[in-house]
Amino acid sequence: MVGTQPLIWRRIPERYRLHGSKCLTCNAEFFPQRQFCPNCRRKGKLVKEHMPMDGTIYSYTYVHSAPEGFEYHVPYFMAIIELKNGVRLMSQLADSEPESVKINASVRMVFRRVHESEAEEAIAYGYKFKVVD
C-alpha cells in the first residue's frame, strides 16, 4: 500500500540504526523514541540517543503461523532483546539456528528486509538480531 510510505519513512531512524531517546534529567534510555520522560514528567529533557547494537535474548517464541506478509518467513523466532543499556525491544531473529536460540544468548543487530507487501511497493528495511558466538 502506497499509504504506508510516510509511516515507513518516519520510522527510518529507529529501524535503520536503533535511534531512541535519553532523558538528560534521570539518564533513563528509551526505545522507540519518546516525546516525554515517564519518570521525570515535565522536568525531563529528552534527546536522541543511539541504542547499542548488542544485547541478549530476554525471551523468545517460535512462530509457525505468521501474520499476513510474513508467510514465507515461517518458521521464525521473535524475541525480546535486552540491549546492553538495559532497554528491551521486540525483534525477529535472523540466521539463528533453533539450537542456538536460548534465553541469555548474545545477539547483535543486523540490517535486513523487514517487510515487502508487493513486488512493486517500496521495501521496508530495518533491524533484526542474530545470535553470535
Partner: peptide, 11 residues
C-alpha cells in the same frame, strides 16, 4: 536469504 539483498549486504 529472502530478507537479504544488495542493500542489506552493503549496509
Amino acid at each position: 536469504s529472502f530478507d537479504e539483498d544488495s542493500a542489506t549486504l552493503a549496509v
